[in-house]
């Protein structure tokens, strides 16, 4: 069954600093979206706000999951409803292994019926294999002392294990070497299907060669200013954001100017 995530005229601020100025975006399961845009334009803010990070405050607009407003739902409820955010900067949690953490997270989805250990182990091993990760990684403390690239892989491991409907991937490609990038792409592509959608935030067209999107959005100045197909990303790679801005006649200052 198709599920719909709708963002309507979303305005968001953090510490009284307005960041998003009316974002509109609709994502259905079965679709792959990419969001690109200059630094400091509000991409992470959008992803974090959808996920329910209490640091960000919605001043206007709505986030609807199959028509249900998520505004009053806490982050954990949103996760259990099928949202997932691979974070730009995942936290380190020494004291719990990735494996135990994952089992707790799976069981949080149906506490009355905990997953059987053999089933969990076989799913975990399959996911580890797919991502070329060793069993040792899953028995290390969650992200503790992990390199940047290892953390990103661990986010995708969680994605595979938790099987969300909507995965927001915030710069999942940053800091990855080319082999790791292929592995991560393999993980995301394995999730593809009618029950799954992703919104990938990235700075690099290269990621989109491996995870081909259906739709590409460009964000600037706290809004989505252009939407197109995979060609839009290729075009941007050649021309840059300043050029697009001028094309659209937008009055936005870019960080690098």
């Amino acid at each position: 069954m198709m599920t719909k995530l709708e963002i309507k005229n979303l305005k968001v601020e953090a510490d009284n600093h307005p960041i998003l100025h009316g974002v509109n975006l609709t994502v259905n399961t079965g679709e792959m979206h990419a969001i690109m845009g200059p630094n400091g334009t509000g991409k992470s803010t959008l992803a974090e706000t959808i996920m329910g990070n209490p640091h960000y405050h919605i001043t206007d607009g709505q986030i609807l999951l199959d028509g249900v407003d998520l505004a009053t739902k806490k982050v954990d409820e949103r996760a259990r409803a099928g949202l997932f955010l691979a974070m730009q900067y995942p936290a380190e949690i020494p004291g719990i292994t990735t494996a135990n953490f994952l089992r707790a997270a799976i069981n949080a989805r149906h506490p009355e019926q905990p997953i059987a250990i053999p089933k969990f182990m076989s799913e975990l091993n399959n996911a580890l294999d797919l991502l070329d990760m060793s069993q040792k990684t899953a028995n290390r403390y969650l992200n503790a002392g992990f390199s940047g690239g290892e953390k990103k892989r661990n986010e995708i491991l969680q994605l595979l294990m938790l099987k969300p409907k909507f995965a927001l991937l915030d710069e999942i490609d940053s800091g990855l070497d080319i082999d790791a990038l292929k592995v991560v792409a393999k993980g995301v592509n394995a999730m593809r299907g009618p029950e799954f959608a992703t919104v990938m935030i990235t700075h690099y067209q290269r990621l989109l060669d491996y995870i081909v999107p259906d739709v590409v959005h460009v964000m600037m100045g706290g809004r989505i200013v252009k939407t197109g197909g995979p060609d839009l990303a290729k075009h941007l790679e050649k021309t840059g954001y300043a050029c697009l801005r001028d094309e659209l006649g937008l009055d936005i200052e870019l960080v690098d100017e």
Binding site: N53, V75, A79, L85, M87, P90, A91, F101, A105, L162
Partner: peptide
């Protein structure tokens, strides 16, 4: 850290 853990569906 709390937010990260809860973002995977764990209760507070």
């Amino acid at each position: 850290q709390l937010y990260y853990l809860m973002s995977r569906g764990l209760t507070k």
